[in-house]
Design a protein around this nucleic acid. Sequence first.
DNA 1: CTTAAAAATAGGAATCATTACTATTTATGA
DNA 2: TCATAAATAGTAATGATTCCTATTTTTAAG
Lengths: 127, 127
Amino acid sequence: MALKYSRQRQVIKDFLMTRKDHPTADTVYMNVRNEYPNISLGTVYRNLSLLADIGEIQRLRFDDGVDHFDADTSAHYHFVCTQCGRIIDLRMDSLDHIMDLAGRSFDGEIRGHVTYFHGICGDCRES
Amino acid sequence: MALKYSRQRQVIKDFLMTRKDHPTADTVYMNVRNEYPNISLGTVYRNLSLLADIGEIQRLRFDDGVDHFDADTSAHYHFVCTQCGRIIDLRMDSLDHIMDLAGRSFDGEIRGHVTYFHGICGDCRES
DNA sequence: CTTAAAAATAGGAATCATTACTATTTATGA
DNA sequence: TCATAAATAGTAATGATTCCTATTTTTAAG
Protein backbone atom coordinates (compact mmCIF):
# COMPACT_ATOMS: atom_id res chain seq x y z
CA MET A 1 0.00 0.00 0.00
CA ALA A 2 1.99 2.92 -1.18
CA LEU A 3 -0.16 5.81 -2.28
CA LYS A 4 -3.70 6.13 -1.11
CA TYR A 5 -6.34 8.29 -2.74
CA SER A 6 -7.37 11.44 -0.97
CA ARG A 7 -9.99 13.93 -1.98
CA GLN A 8 -7.76 16.77 -0.82
CA ARG A 9 -4.94 15.73 -3.10
CA GLN A 10 -7.33 15.45 -6.01
CA VAL A 11 -8.75 18.90 -5.40
CA ILE A 12 -5.25 20.39 -5.16
CA LYS A 13 -4.16 18.83 -8.41
CA ASP A 14 -7.40 19.73 -10.17
CA PHE A 15 -7.01 23.33 -9.11
CA LEU A 16 -3.41 23.48 -10.24
CA MET A 17 -4.39 22.19 -13.66
CA THR A 18 -6.73 25.11 -14.16
CA ARG A 19 -3.94 27.63 -13.65
CA LYS A 20 -1.05 28.51 -15.85
CA ASP A 21 0.40 31.23 -13.64
CA HIS A 22 2.39 28.88 -11.38
CA PRO A 23 0.83 29.66 -7.99
CA THR A 24 2.52 29.31 -4.61
CA ALA A 25 1.41 26.89 -1.92
CA ASP A 26 -0.40 29.70 -0.16
CA THR A 27 -2.31 30.68 -3.29
CA VAL A 28 -3.31 27.07 -3.80
CA TYR A 29 -4.47 26.96 -0.19
CA MET A 30 -6.55 30.13 -0.50
CA ASN A 31 -8.30 28.91 -3.63
CA VAL A 32 -8.81 25.31 -2.65
CA ARG A 33 -10.50 26.41 0.55
CA ASN A 34 -13.44 27.67 -1.49
CA GLU A 35 -14.21 24.13 -2.49
CA TYR A 36 -12.82 22.40 0.58
CA PRO A 37 -13.23 24.85 3.47
CA ASN A 38 -11.33 23.09 6.23
CA ILE A 39 -8.36 21.75 4.35
CA SER A 40 -5.19 22.58 6.22
CA LEU A 41 -2.19 24.46 4.92
CA GLY A 42 0.04 21.56 5.94
CA THR A 43 -1.97 19.24 3.74
CA VAL A 44 -1.50 21.57 0.80
CA TYR A 45 2.25 21.69 1.35
CA ARG A 46 2.53 17.95 1.88
CA ASN A 47 0.58 17.12 -1.26
CA LEU A 48 2.31 19.65 -3.45
CA SER A 49 5.64 18.19 -2.37
CA LEU A 50 4.44 14.65 -2.86
CA LEU A 51 3.02 15.37 -6.31
CA ALA A 52 6.28 17.03 -7.26
CA ASP A 53 8.28 14.07 -5.96
CA ILE A 54 6.33 11.55 -8.02
CA GLY A 55 6.54 13.79 -11.06
CA GLU A 56 2.87 14.70 -11.45
CA ILE A 57 3.60 18.39 -11.06
CA GLN A 58 6.69 20.56 -11.18
CA ARG A 59 8.19 22.65 -8.41
CA LEU A 60 9.67 25.92 -9.62
CA ARG A 61 12.07 28.08 -7.70
CA PHE A 62 12.88 31.60 -8.81
CA ASP A 63 14.54 34.22 -6.69
CA ASP A 64 11.52 35.47 -4.79
CA GLY A 65 12.26 32.83 -2.18
CA VAL A 66 8.87 31.13 -2.50
CA ASP A 67 8.16 27.86 -4.25
CA HIS A 68 5.85 27.92 -7.24
CA PHE A 69 4.03 24.94 -8.70
CA ASP A 70 3.17 24.01 -12.25
CA ALA A 71 0.84 21.24 -13.43
CA ASP A 72 2.63 21.26 -16.77
CA THR A 73 5.42 18.76 -16.31
CA SER A 74 6.84 19.06 -19.78
CA ALA A 75 10.27 20.64 -20.01
CA HIS A 76 9.78 24.31 -20.68
CA TYR A 77 11.20 27.64 -19.62
CA HIS A 78 9.84 30.61 -17.73
CA PHE A 79 10.02 34.36 -17.73
CA VAL A 80 9.70 36.39 -14.53
CA CYS A 81 8.63 40.03 -14.82
CA THR A 82 10.76 42.07 -12.45
CA GLN A 83 8.04 44.71 -12.28
CA CYS A 84 4.78 42.84 -11.65
CA GLY A 85 6.25 39.50 -10.62
CA ARG A 86 4.20 37.59 -13.16
CA ILE A 87 5.59 34.25 -14.31
CA ILE A 88 4.99 33.43 -17.95
CA ASP A 89 5.62 30.23 -19.91
CA LEU A 90 7.99 30.56 -22.83
CA ARG A 91 7.54 28.61 -26.00
CA MET A 92 11.00 27.79 -27.16
CA ASP A 93 13.17 24.85 -28.06
CA SER A 94 15.13 22.94 -25.48
CA LEU A 95 18.42 24.46 -24.37
CA ASP A 96 20.05 21.11 -23.73
CA HIS A 97 23.01 22.12 -25.87
CA ILE A 98 24.18 24.48 -23.12
CA MET A 99 25.04 21.42 -21.03
CA ASP A 100 27.53 20.38 -23.66
CA LEU A 101 29.01 23.86 -23.60
CA ALA A 102 29.28 23.68 -19.82
CA GLY A 103 30.79 20.20 -19.88
CA ARG A 104 33.70 21.08 -22.09
CA SER A 105 35.85 22.48 -19.34
CA PHE A 106 34.48 20.42 -16.48
CA ASP A 107 35.40 16.98 -15.27
CA GLY A 108 32.15 16.07 -13.50
CA GLU A 109 28.95 14.80 -15.02
CA ILE A 110 26.38 17.41 -15.95
CA ARG A 111 22.91 15.96 -15.70
CA GLY A 112 20.65 18.96 -15.90
CA HIS A 113 20.30 22.69 -15.93
CA VAL A 114 18.02 25.29 -14.40
CA THR A 115 17.29 28.35 -16.49
CA TYR A 116 14.81 31.15 -16.36
CA PHE A 117 14.63 34.60 -17.87
CA HIS A 118 13.68 37.95 -16.42
CA GLY A 119 12.84 41.43 -17.66
CA ILE A 120 9.71 43.45 -18.35
CA CYS A 121 6.60 41.71 -19.57
CA GLY A 122 4.47 42.99 -22.43
CA ASP A 123 1.77 44.41 -20.17
CA CYS A 124 4.19 46.30 -17.95
CA ARG A 125 6.05 47.77 -20.89
CA GLU A 126 2.90 49.51 -22.10
CA SER A 127 2.33 51.46 -18.91
CA MET B 1 27.34 60.84 3.68
CA ALA B 2 26.21 57.71 1.98
CA LEU B 3 28.42 54.78 2.79
CA LYS B 4 30.62 54.81 5.83
CA TYR B 5 33.59 52.56 6.37
CA SER B 6 33.21 49.75 8.87
CA ARG B 7 35.80 47.27 9.96
CA GLN B 8 33.15 44.54 10.03
CA ARG B 9 32.24 45.09 6.40
CA GLN B 10 35.89 45.04 5.43
CA VAL B 11 36.51 41.79 7.25
CA ILE B 12 33.46 40.20 5.64
CA LYS B 13 34.53 41.18 2.17
CA ASP B 14 38.13 40.17 2.80
CA PHE B 15 37.03 36.77 3.95
CA LEU B 16 34.75 36.28 0.98
CA MET B 17 37.59 37.09 -1.38
CA THR B 18 39.63 34.23 0.03
CA ARG B 19 36.95 31.70 -0.82
CA LYS B 20 35.83 30.35 -4.11
CA ASP B 21 33.23 27.95 -2.78
CA HIS B 22 30.41 30.49 -2.47
CA PRO B 23 29.68 30.32 1.25
CA THR B 24 26.36 31.10 2.91
CA ALA B 25 25.84 33.96 5.36
CA ASP B 26 26.13 31.54 8.23
CA THR B 27 29.44 30.18 6.99
CA VAL B 28 30.73 33.71 6.62
CA TYR B 29 29.59 34.43 10.16
CA MET B 30 31.30 31.35 11.61
CA ASN B 31 34.59 32.16 9.94
CA VAL B 32 34.64 35.88 10.47
CA ARG B 33 34.09 35.38 14.19
CA ASN B 34 37.57 33.96 14.45
CA GLU B 35 38.96 37.34 13.58
CA TYR B 36 36.15 39.45 14.96
CA PRO B 37 34.67 37.48 17.86
CA ASN B 38 31.62 39.53 18.70
CA ILE B 39 30.38 40.45 15.27
CA SER B 40 26.67 39.79 15.05
CA LEU B 41 24.91 37.60 12.54
CA GLY B 42 22.65 40.50 11.61
CA THR B 43 25.69 42.55 10.67
CA VAL B 44 26.89 39.77 8.41
CA TYR B 45 23.51 39.57 6.68
CA ARG B 46 23.18 43.33 6.40
CA ASN B 47 26.63 43.75 4.88
CA LEU B 48 26.36 40.83 2.50
CA SER B 49 23.10 42.28 1.22
CA LEU B 50 24.55 45.75 1.00
CA LEU B 51 27.65 44.58 -0.83
CA ALA B 52 25.48 42.64 -3.24
CA ASP B 53 23.25 45.67 -3.80
CA ILE B 54 26.17 47.92 -4.69
CA GLY B 55 27.63 45.24 -6.91
CA GLU B 56 30.79 44.45 -4.97
CA ILE B 57 29.79 40.84 -4.52
CA GLN B 58 27.23 38.54 -6.07
CA ARG B 59 24.29 36.83 -4.41
CA LEU B 60 23.63 33.34 -5.75
CA ARG B 61 20.45 31.40 -5.27
CA PHE B 62 20.26 27.71 -6.09
CA ASP B 63 17.56 25.36 -4.95
CA ASP B 64 18.83 24.58 -1.50
CA GLY B 65 16.84 27.54 -0.21
CA VAL B 66 19.87 29.33 1.21
CA ASP B 67 21.64 32.33 -0.27
CA HIS B 68 25.24 31.92 -1.32
CA PHE B 69 27.74 34.72 -1.89
CA ASP B 70 30.53 35.13 -4.36
CA ALA B 71 33.25 37.79 -4.38
CA ASP B 72 33.74 37.17 -8.09
CA THR B 73 31.32 39.59 -9.71
CA SER B 74 32.16 38.71 -13.28
CA ALA B 75 29.41 36.94 -15.21
CA HIS B 76 30.02 33.25 -14.91
CA TYR B 77 28.10 30.04 -14.39
CA HIS B 78 27.96 27.47 -11.63
CA PHE B 79 27.64 23.76 -11.16
CA VAL B 80 25.94 22.27 -8.10
CA CYS B 81 26.80 18.69 -7.15
CA THR B 82 23.59 16.93 -6.18
CA GLN B 83 25.57 14.49 -4.05
CA CYS B 84 27.95 16.59 -1.96
CA GLY B 85 26.32 19.97 -2.49
CA ARG B 86 29.55 21.57 -3.64
CA ILE B 87 29.25 24.60 -5.87
CA ILE B 88 31.88 24.90 -8.56
CA ASP B 89 32.67 27.71 -10.98
CA LEU B 90 32.41 26.83 -14.62
CA ARG B 91 34.70 28.30 -17.20
CA MET B 92 32.60 28.75 -20.27
CA ASP B 93 31.50 31.40 -22.71
CA SER B 94 28.52 33.58 -22.08
CA LEU B 95 25.14 32.09 -22.86
CA ASP B 96 23.60 35.40 -23.81
CA HIS B 97 22.38 33.93 -27.08
CA ILE B 98 19.71 31.98 -25.20
CA MET B 99 17.97 35.27 -24.48
CA ASP B 100 17.51 35.77 -28.20
CA LEU B 101 16.10 32.28 -28.47
CA ALA B 102 13.70 33.02 -25.64
CA GLY B 103 12.67 36.37 -27.09
CA ARG B 104 11.54 35.03 -30.42
CA SER B 105 8.12 33.97 -29.25
CA PHE B 106 7.68 36.51 -26.49
CA ASP B 107 6.40 40.06 -26.58
CA GLY B 108 8.07 41.38 -23.43
CA GLU B 109 11.62 42.55 -22.98
CA ILE B 110 14.12 39.97 -21.83
CA ARG B 111 16.88 41.60 -19.83
CA GLY B 112 18.68 38.72 -18.22
CA HIS B 113 18.80 35.03 -17.47
CA VAL B 114 19.64 32.82 -14.53
CA THR B 115 21.29 29.52 -15.30
CA TYR B 116 23.09 26.91 -13.32
CA PHE B 117 23.94 23.27 -13.90
CA HIS B 118 23.71 20.24 -11.68
CA GLY B 119 24.94 16.66 -11.64
CA ILE B 120 27.79 14.71 -10.08
CA CYS B 121 31.11 16.41 -9.51
CA GLY B 122 34.43 14.82 -10.36
CA ASP B 123 35.26 13.89 -6.79
CA CYS B 124 31.89 12.25 -6.11
CA ARG B 125 32.02 10.25 -9.31
CA GLU B 126 35.19 8.51 -8.18
CA SER B 127 33.70 7.12 -4.99
C1' DC C 1 -20.08 -6.37 4.48
C1' DT C 2 -16.57 -6.15 8.31
C1' DT C 3 -12.18 -5.19 9.77
C1' DA C 4 -7.40 -4.19 10.43
C1' DA C 5 -3.47 -1.71 9.04
C1' DA C 6 -1.40 1.73 6.42
C1' DA C 7 -1.87 6.25 4.82
C1' DA C 8 -3.68 10.81 5.14
C1' DT C 9 -5.59 14.65 7.58
C1' DA C 10 -6.29 18.89 10.65
C1' DG C 11 -4.40 21.81 13.63
C1' DG C 12 -0.85 23.51 15.84
C1' DA C 13 4.00 23.67 17.24
C1' DA C 14 8.68 23.92 15.64
C1' DT C 15 12.39 25.19 12.47
C1' DC C 16 15.33 27.90 9.86
C1' DA C 17 16.89 31.63 7.09
C1' DT C 18 16.39 36.23 6.99
C1' DT C 19 14.84 40.88 8.28
C1' DA C 20 13.42 44.46 11.54
C1' DC C 21 13.97 47.07 15.73
C1' DT C 22 16.46 49.91 19.08
C1' DA C 23 19.71 51.67 22.14
C1' DT C 24 24.53 52.43 21.72
C1' DT C 25 28.82 53.12 19.25
C1' DT C 26 31.61 54.73 15.37
C1' DA C 27 33.15 57.29 11.30
C1' DT C 28 33.77 61.55 9.17
C1' DG C 29 33.00 66.27 7.23
C1' DA C 30 32.97 70.86 8.99
C1' DT D 1 36.33 69.10 18.75
C1' DC D 2 31.79 68.29 17.48
C1' DA D 3 27.53 67.17 15.27
C1' DT D 4 25.27 63.86 12.88
C1' DA D 5 24.47 60.27 9.81
C1' DA D 6 25.63 55.54 9.48
C1' DA D 7 26.70 51.17 11.51
C1' DT D 8 26.63 47.86 15.14
C1' DA D 9 25.19 44.20 18.68
C1' DG D 10 21.73 41.83 20.43
C1' DT D 11 17.38 40.40 20.24
C1' DA D 12 12.68 40.06 18.59
C1' DA D 13 9.82 39.29 14.68
C1' DT D 14 8.63 37.36 10.22
C1' DG D 15 7.38 34.10 6.81
C1' DA D 16 7.73 29.96 4.32
C1' DT D 17 7.99 25.40 5.19
C1' DT D 18 8.27 21.15 7.85
C1' DC D 19 7.25 18.32 11.78
C1' DC D 20 4.25 16.18 15.28
C1' DT D 21 0.23 13.68 16.96
C1' DA D 22 -4.31 12.30 17.79
C1' DT D 23 -7.99 11.29 14.72
C1' DT D 24 -10.05 9.99 10.34
C1' DT D 25 -10.07 7.79 5.85
C1' DT D 26 -8.86 4.54 2.35
C1' DT D 27 -8.36 0.00 0.86
C1' DA D 28 -7.02 -4.88 0.69
C1' DA D 29 -8.41 -9.14 2.51
C1' DG D 30 -11.32 -12.33 4.91
